[in-house]
Protein backbone atom coordinates (compact mmCIF):
# COMPACT_ATOMS: atom_id res chain seq x y z
CA UNK A 1 0.00 0.00 0.00
CA UNK A 2 1.54 3.25 -0.96
CA UNK A 3 1.33 6.48 0.87
CA UNK A 4 -1.35 7.92 -1.36
CA UNK A 5 -3.74 5.15 -0.46
CA UNK A 6 -3.18 5.65 3.20
CA UNK A 7 -3.93 9.32 2.80
CA UNK A 8 -7.11 8.48 1.00
CA UNK A 9 -8.18 6.10 3.69
CA UNK A 10 -7.51 8.67 6.30
CA UNK A 11 -9.56 11.14 4.37
CA UNK A 12 -12.40 8.69 4.09
CA UNK A 13 -12.33 8.05 7.77
CA UNK A 14 -12.87 11.72 8.41
CA UNK A 15 -16.22 13.35 8.33
CA UNK A 16 -17.16 16.42 6.47
CA UNK A 17 -19.09 17.99 9.34
CA UNK A 18 -21.39 19.47 6.81
CA UNK A 19 -23.60 22.26 7.93
CA UNK A 20 -21.04 23.82 10.19
CA UNK A 21 -19.19 26.96 9.32
CA UNK A 22 -15.44 26.73 8.73
CA UNK A 23 -14.76 28.31 12.07
CA UNK A 24 -16.93 25.92 13.97
CA UNK A 25 -15.63 22.82 12.26
CA UNK A 26 -12.44 22.92 14.24
CA UNK A 27 -14.43 22.80 17.45
CA UNK A 28 -15.85 19.40 16.74
CA UNK A 29 -14.34 16.03 16.23
CA UNK A 30 -14.19 14.79 12.69
CA UNK A 31 -13.24 11.22 13.52
CA UNK A 32 -15.64 8.51 12.65
CA UNK A 33 -16.97 6.54 15.59
CA UNK A 34 -15.58 3.07 15.96
CA UNK A 35 -17.13 0.06 17.55
CA UNK A 36 -15.72 -0.85 20.94
CA UNK A 37 -15.09 -4.48 21.72
CA UNK A 38 -16.50 -5.88 24.91
CA UNK A 39 -14.03 -6.68 27.66
CA UNK A 40 -13.09 -10.06 28.95
CA UNK A 41 -16.12 -12.32 29.15
CA UNK A 42 -16.61 -12.52 32.89
CA UNK A 43 -15.82 -8.92 33.56
CA UNK A 44 -18.22 -7.89 30.86
CA UNK A 45 -20.89 -10.05 32.35
CA UNK A 46 -20.39 -8.45 35.72
CA UNK A 47 -20.48 -4.97 34.22
CA UNK A 48 -23.58 -5.84 32.28
CA UNK A 49 -25.22 -6.76 35.52
CA UNK A 50 -24.25 -3.40 36.98
CA UNK A 51 -25.46 -1.60 33.87
CA UNK A 52 -28.77 -3.38 34.02
CA UNK A 53 -29.32 -2.67 37.66
CA UNK A 54 -28.55 0.98 37.37
CA UNK A 55 -30.39 2.49 34.44
CA UNK A 56 -30.07 6.21 34.17
CA UNK A 57 -32.59 7.63 31.82
CA UNK A 58 -32.12 10.86 30.00
CA UNK A 59 -34.69 13.39 31.08
CA UNK A 60 -35.77 14.39 27.63
CA UNK A 61 -39.50 14.20 27.16
CA UNK A 62 -39.62 13.94 23.42
CA UNK A 63 -43.31 13.28 22.99
CA UNK A 64 -46.47 12.46 24.83
CA UNK A 65 -44.57 9.62 26.49
CA UNK A 66 -43.13 12.11 28.90
CA UNK A 67 -46.50 12.27 30.59
CA UNK A 68 -46.26 8.71 31.81
CA UNK A 69 -42.69 9.14 32.99
CA UNK A 70 -43.97 11.51 35.63
CA UNK A 71 -46.18 8.92 37.41
CA UNK A 72 -43.44 6.41 36.86
CA UNK A 73 -40.92 8.40 38.83
CA UNK A 74 -43.33 9.44 41.54
CA UNK A 75 -44.92 7.78 44.47
CA UNK A 76 -47.42 5.52 42.77
CA UNK A 77 -44.98 3.56 40.65
CA UNK A 78 -41.60 4.55 42.03
CA UNK A 79 -39.17 3.44 39.39
CA UNK A 80 -36.25 4.22 41.67
CA UNK A 81 -36.67 0.94 43.45
CA UNK A 82 -35.78 -0.81 40.20
CA UNK A 83 -32.56 1.14 39.99
CA UNK A 84 -33.94 3.50 37.39
CA UNK A 85 -33.29 7.17 37.87
CA UNK A 86 -33.60 10.23 35.67
CA UNK A 87 -30.47 12.07 34.76
CA UNK A 88 -30.56 15.60 33.46
CA UNK A 89 -27.62 15.47 31.11
CA UNK A 90 -26.96 13.10 28.22
CA UNK A 91 -23.35 12.69 29.24
CA UNK A 92 -24.38 10.75 32.30
CA UNK A 93 -27.43 8.94 31.04
CA UNK A 94 -27.45 5.43 29.73
CA UNK A 95 -31.04 4.94 28.60
CA UNK A 96 -32.84 7.11 26.12
CA UNK A 97 -36.60 6.86 26.37
CA UNK A 98 -38.13 8.02 23.12
CA UNK A 99 -41.54 9.13 24.27
CA UNK A 100 -43.54 8.51 21.17
CA UNK A 101 -43.61 10.57 18.01
CA UNK A 102 -40.59 12.63 17.12
CA UNK A 103 -41.03 15.69 14.99
CA UNK A 104 -38.24 16.67 12.65
CA UNK A 105 -37.20 19.46 14.95
CA UNK A 106 -36.98 16.98 17.82
CA UNK A 107 -35.31 14.16 15.94
CA UNK A 108 -32.44 16.52 15.34
CA UNK A 109 -32.06 16.98 19.08
CA UNK A 110 -32.62 13.30 19.68
CA UNK A 111 -29.76 12.43 17.37
CA UNK A 112 -27.54 14.94 19.03
CA UNK A 113 -28.44 13.87 22.54
CA UNK A 114 -28.02 10.25 21.58
CA UNK A 115 -24.58 10.89 20.24
CA UNK A 116 -23.64 12.78 23.36
CA UNK A 117 -24.53 9.83 25.52
CA UNK A 118 -21.64 7.64 26.50
CA UNK A 119 -21.76 4.05 25.45
CA UNK A 120 -23.01 1.51 26.07
CA UNK A 121 -26.33 3.21 25.69
CA UNK A 122 -29.79 1.83 25.30
CA UNK A 123 -32.92 3.11 23.67
CA UNK A 124 -36.48 2.31 24.62
CA UNK A 125 -39.09 3.40 22.13
CA UNK A 126 -42.58 3.97 23.41
CA UNK A 127 -45.80 3.68 21.59
CA UNK A 128 -47.00 3.12 18.09
CA UNK A 129 -45.52 6.31 16.72
CA UNK A 130 -42.00 5.04 17.05
CA UNK A 131 -42.76 1.73 15.42
CA UNK A 132 -44.60 2.69 12.28
CA UNK A 133 -45.72 6.26 12.56
CA UNK A 134 -48.69 5.61 14.80
CA UNK A 135 -51.53 8.00 14.46
CA UNK A 136 -49.26 10.54 12.85
CA UNK A 137 -48.29 8.25 10.02
CA UNK A 138 -49.45 10.82 7.51
CA UNK A 139 -48.11 13.86 9.24
CA UNK A 140 -45.63 15.91 7.29
CA UNK A 141 -43.58 16.65 10.34
CA UNK A 142 -43.15 13.48 12.33
CA UNK A 143 -40.92 10.60 11.42
CA UNK A 144 -42.42 7.18 11.04
CA UNK A 145 -39.91 4.78 12.42
CA UNK A 146 -37.26 5.71 14.89
CA UNK A 147 -35.05 2.73 14.09
CA UNK A 148 -34.03 4.42 10.89
CA UNK A 149 -32.30 7.15 12.80
CA UNK A 150 -30.97 5.59 15.97
CA UNK A 151 -30.73 1.95 17.00
CA UNK A 152 -33.52 0.84 19.30
CA UNK A 153 -33.33 -1.97 21.84
CA UNK A 154 -36.84 -2.29 23.20
CA UNK A 155 -40.24 -1.33 21.92
CA UNK A 156 -43.24 -0.93 24.16
CA UNK A 157 -46.64 -1.07 22.54
CA UNK A 158 -49.35 1.35 23.52
CA UNK A 159 -50.56 4.84 22.91
CA UNK A 160 -49.46 5.84 25.50
CA UNK A 161 -48.01 2.76 27.15
CA UNK A 162 -48.98 2.77 30.77
CA UNK A 163 -46.32 3.04 33.48
CA UNK A 164 -46.70 -0.67 34.13
CA UNK A 165 -45.95 -1.42 30.50
CA UNK A 166 -42.96 0.84 30.78
CA UNK A 167 -41.73 -1.06 33.80
CA UNK A 168 -42.16 -4.25 31.82
CA UNK A 169 -40.11 -2.60 29.10
CA UNK A 170 -37.37 -1.79 31.53
CA UNK A 171 -37.42 -5.32 32.88
CA UNK A 172 -37.04 -6.67 29.39
CA UNK A 173 -34.22 -4.25 28.76
CA UNK A 174 -32.49 -5.45 31.90
CA UNK A 175 -32.75 -9.02 30.72
CA UNK A 176 -31.41 -8.11 27.33
CA UNK A 177 -28.50 -6.18 28.80
CA UNK A 178 -27.62 -9.04 31.09
CA UNK A 179 -27.71 -11.35 28.13
CA UNK A 180 -25.33 -8.97 26.40
CA UNK A 181 -27.68 -8.32 23.52
CA UNK A 182 -27.99 -4.58 23.70
CA UNK A 183 -25.28 -3.34 21.47
CA UNK A 184 -26.91 -0.30 19.95
CA UNK A 185 -23.80 1.77 20.37
CA UNK A 186 -21.68 -0.49 18.22
CA UNK A 187 -24.49 -0.96 15.77
CA UNK A 188 -24.65 2.77 15.36
CA UNK A 189 -20.93 2.99 14.79
CA UNK A 190 -20.92 0.15 12.30
CA UNK A 191 -23.81 1.49 10.25
CA UNK A 192 -22.86 5.05 10.81
CA UNK A 193 -23.19 6.13 7.19
CA UNK A 194 -26.60 4.60 6.81
CA UNK A 195 -27.89 6.31 9.90
CA UNK A 196 -26.39 9.62 8.90
CA UNK A 197 -27.89 9.37 5.45
CA UNK A 198 -31.32 8.69 6.88
CA UNK A 199 -30.99 11.48 9.35
CA UNK A 200 -29.92 13.95 6.72
CA UNK A 201 -32.80 12.97 4.52
CA UNK A 202 -35.34 14.24 6.98
CA UNK A 203 -33.41 16.92 8.82
CA UNK A 204 -33.13 19.49 6.10
CA UNK A 205 -31.59 22.13 8.28
CA UNK A 206 -28.40 20.25 9.10
CA UNK A 207 -26.37 22.75 11.04
CA UNK A 208 -24.77 20.40 13.49
CA UNK A 209 -21.60 18.35 13.48
CA UNK A 210 -21.83 14.92 11.96
CA UNK A 211 -20.10 13.47 14.90
CA UNK A 212 -20.62 14.68 18.38
CA UNK A 213 -19.55 11.80 20.51
Amino acid sequence: MNKKDINNIEKEMKLANEGLSEKERTLFSDARPTPVKPLNKYLEKFLNWARAESLWILAFGTGCGAIELRPLMTSRFDMFRYGIAPRPTPRQASVFVIGGYASIKTIKRIVRSYEQMQGPKFVIALGSCTINGGMYYDSYYTINRIDHYIPVDIYVAGCMPRPEALIAGFNKLKMQIKAGKCDGMNKYAENFDWYKENQKRVIKDWNMPDYNW
Binding site: T62, G63, Y101, S103, K105, T106, R109, M135, Y136, D138, S139, Y140, Y141, T142
Partner: peptide, 23 residues
Protein backbone atom coordinates in the same frame (compact mmCIF):
# COMPACT_ATOMS: atom_id res chain seq x y z
CA UNK B 1 -41.50 25.82 19.98
CA UNK B 2 -42.27 23.27 17.33
CA UNK B 3 -40.58 20.29 18.90
CA UNK B 4 -43.97 18.72 19.31
CA UNK B 5 -45.46 19.91 16.05
CA UNK B 6 -47.47 17.16 14.46
CA UNK B 7 -49.50 19.18 12.01
CA UNK B 8 -52.74 18.29 13.74
CA UNK B 9 -54.80 20.80 11.86
CA UNK B 10 -53.59 19.40 8.58
CA UNK B 11 -54.27 15.84 9.71
CA UNK B 12 -57.77 16.76 10.80
CA UNK B 13 -58.55 17.95 7.31
CA UNK B 14 -57.92 14.43 6.08
CA UNK B 15 -60.07 12.65 8.62
CA UNK B 16 -63.76 12.07 8.84
CA UNK B 17 -65.61 13.90 11.58
CA UNK B 18 -65.78 10.85 13.78
CA UNK B 19 -62.15 9.98 13.24
CA UNK B 20 -61.03 13.39 14.41
CA UNK B 21 -62.21 12.84 17.93
CA UNK B 22 -59.51 10.29 18.57
CA UNK B 23 -56.79 12.65 17.58
Amino acid sequence: VGYLHRGFEKLLERRKYIQCFTI
